[in-house]
Write a protein that binds this DNA or RNA. Structure first.
Lengths: 244, 244
DNA sequence: AAATGACAAAGGTATGACCTATGTTACATA
DNA sequence: TATGTAACATAGGTCATACCTTTGTCATTT
């Protein structure tokens, strides 16, 4: 086995420009850890990785370093690479969230994310009411109107898209860089609700009103009202998901 | 320059077991990017890194991979390593937070974190009221009592330590893994308040009462009250920091 | 039983080579 | 002149190998 001629990393090798090798290995290993296939405390060596994925030491090290930087593993001389306790993982890393959503533990990840939404989005709405730019306020109002139109027409797919745009824009208008960084995760949660049939055929009128209320409050610069209205939206979500 | 004999990475070489080389390089580069010394769009090459820090290509690549996984840079063939726009950074990565707190932009990082606390901690308190274990409830109550004692005695350092323990335990009792992961950042914010003299000589009585109220509500399993009481604590913080 | 020292395993680091994608430039063509 | 195209050089991607350093482990000694 001089060079990696034998289809490294178990790729099906179908599409040409698939992905960089190190990313595929990273994803594979990350998913293995997150799924519990490689349990906490499990010890690996660079040699294991090289053989398991048929890669060079360079790539094994690259992958390990990234995993280490996410606190999924740590490495010690003479010991090897050890899978960390989940308590220590950087659970805000988008890669990790993605892996968990793809695993059998997806339900837990969703409820964590939903609770995070419940916490953050009202404050983000208040922040937007204080700090959003004029264009953002206009766009938010427009999106709320579009949500009503699409919702009443029962166009669920388009509704989802607009809903994601609404919540994402709100986070971006909040003026808090950490809130902005949550937009991908919120989009993920919203998509999944629709895909898993957790959405009613038509959005409830209360939800439509609440979105309009948020947009109006943000447009008016009324932080308190924006926060409360966003709370109403999330109460909808909470009950829809059967949370307390 | 055959091997790295000339004091690589600019270490002062004083303490023997300082740190792994790759971590020092990572910190140095991360801080350089975060501080703006390496502005977004700035292009580097692996060769640059090797020379700048007097390291081998192996380490330059390791460092780059980690930075890439944090979205601080991206790398493209024939182009090099490009510093990303701050909008795209993984701002929840603890390393990044640490670098920013050490930079001249620390104030922005603090206000982002504080707003995040304002959002998360009340919901975490509510979660704790629902899901905390018996031992956690007892310990929270004990910590609230200790906070009163230390606060009234004016022992600021011990108070800070207990305060951190209180908020950290609350996050850990919330039953939400993502909230748990914020404990280090909350501790950081709390420490800084005291160090920067933003704390009154003695904690305000209202703050002490609010901590006791949170503990009592969690102990009683009263989620709504716990959430509200935590809001009061954070209102204190908000006004102390001069936020709206 | 405890301290000590030899040994070996595994990551840490350094080099050098070759592969491959891709920006750039120059040239040829319409 | 504008445009498509082919050659070229650059810089990361990947691999292989070698040596250093730390640190578990185990046998030896006291």
């Amino acid at each position: 086995m001089s060079t990696a001629t034998e289809n490294p990393a178990g790729t099906t090798d179908g599409e040409p420009g698939a992905q960089a090798l190190h990313l595929r290995v990273l994803d594979a290993l990350g998913e293995a850890i997150v799924s519990g296939e490689l349990a906490p405390g499990r010890r690996l060596t660079l040699d294991d990785l090289q053989q398991r994925y048929n890669i060079s030491r360079t790539l094994a090290r690259d992958t390990m370093r990234v995993l280490e930087s996410m606190n999924l593993v740590y490495s010690r001389r003479r010991v090897g690479i050890v899978v960390q306790d989940p308590e220590l993982w950087n659970v805000f890393d988008p890669k990790l969230v993605r892996w968990r959503l793809a695993s059998s533990r997806r339900a837990e990840q969703y409820s964590s994310l939903t609770e995070l939404r419940i916490a953050v989005e009202p404050i983000a709405a208040a922040g937007a009411a204080r700090r959003a730019g004029a264009a953002e306020r206009r766009q938010l109002t427009a999106l709320a109107a579009e949500l009503r139109r699409l919702g009443e027409a029962g166009e669920l797919e388009a509704f989802l898209k607009a809903d994601i745009a609404f919540h994402s824009l709100l986070l971006h208008s909040s003026g808090n860089e950490m809130f902005k960084a949550l937009d991908g995760m919120v989009a993920e949660v919203l998509s999944s609700r629709t895909q898993q049939g957790l959405m009613p055929f038509k959005p409830r009128p209360e939800a439509l009103e609440a979105h309009e209320a948020v947009a109006a409050a943000v447009a008016a610069g009324d932080a308190g009202t924006a926060e409360t209205a966003m709370h109403h939206i999330l109460d909808e979500v909470r009950t829809a998901m059967g949370l307390p």
